[in-house]
Design a binder for these strands. Sequence first.
DNA 1: GCCAACGTTGGC
DNA 2: GCCAACGTTGGC
Length: 154
Amino acid sequence: MSARQWLMKSEPDVFSIDDLERVRVSGWDGVRNYQARNFMRAMRAGDEVLFYHSNAAPSGVAGLAVVAREAYPDPTQFDPKGGHYEPRATRAAPVWDQVDVRFEAKLPRLLSLDELRGVPALAGMALFARSRLSVQPVTPAQYRTIVALAGRGR
DNA sequence: GCCAACGTTGGC
DNA sequence: GCCAACGTTGGC
């Protein structure tokens, strides 16, 4: 089966596309929403990811990544001193998963949420209707549209 | 920093 | 199982 496409949000103050470029591969830890977790569980190695900067000025799609490792337990859920501790989780029965993503590219320019909202081909994106969902599927057509937009300029 | 939207928790 | 209270996300 060919790769599928996703959008994943990160606050650039915490972890940006530039950080991913530096480290090349990173675990996508800290997701604490069931729907987002379930989407990560559905990811397969090689799936394509739009790296979205949230809580930014402006927010928008900043780069491309690829799923490098499929879902496995997020280690931060076991750390009582960390901000992502999950008291219900045990090693035998973890609650939260993460995937690893590999840096692919920075887009030639950031595609802001505001600009994406104005693109008719993207009208159905979960990004607009489900603004709080930090991991979400993207259709191949939406993915292609965004990559093409980034290369074309405004 | 504010606050609306919305997901989660917990009392009943 | 309902739903009010609470906490978090994320745009602005």
